[in-house]
Design a protein around this nucleic acid. Sequence first.
DNA 1: ATGGTTGCGAAGCAA
Length: 259
Amino acid sequence: MKLATWNVNSLGARLPLVLEWMEANAPDILCMQETKLADDAFPSGAFAELGYESAHHGDGRWNGVAIASRVGLEDPASGLGSEEDVHGCRLLAATCAGIRVHSVYVPNGRSLDSEQYRFKLDWLARLRAYLAEHNTPEGDVAVCGDFNVAPDDADVWDPAAFVGATHVSEPERRALQEILDWGLEDTFRRFHPEGGIFSWWDYRAGNFHKGMGMRIDLVLLSKSLAARAVSAEIDRDARKKSPRGNKPSDHTVVLVELD
DNA sequence: ATGGTTGCGAAGCAA
């Protein structure tokens, strides 16, 4: 069972690359973020042609989350509640092969003195409360997506360059840790404790080719699922222009394989 | 080096 997450940075712009990647890599479940689509523009037919059921939560230009699954997709539920809807569509859950899968797009935060930063911290706290309300840590729970938080300095190309910036601040990392403490594991970390492997690189200034990235896209698994994990990888190739010439997102794919 | 790029949508914002 292959479970993947990918911030696609506009599914409208990225659909050819996403389909190309799915055909080549055959994930069983793919969580997507930043689709930037309204629900009525979501290309469910294109996923169906590849054998995937899908669900989407989006209202247009910003944000938007989706799940595609070829192992079933039941009981979709979107949003954290009415307050979240004011700030866009950032959470979609569905049950796939008995796993409660969550596709999440955590607010960026912009800067430490921004109102958006406070919103980011609040949103992470509400995500933890949502997980506790709707799930038990003894169940098969996966929380996948763009967390916009690098869990550790080893997940940042140059920690010194991020002093005073978002994604690495102590309150953000604490808010992420509180989600983990509910009963989830950052599975990639277990397989790659050394760090220095990234999931996002700024489009600008050739950062990708210079290795200037961060690991902010995570697959968090409950204990029962973590015990089934046999590998966790980041597909760096999907951050490059594809063999068919499709342009990449600024994020790439995180892929976990379960027994 | 305070730059640089992409997406949306048609100027400027968000990332």
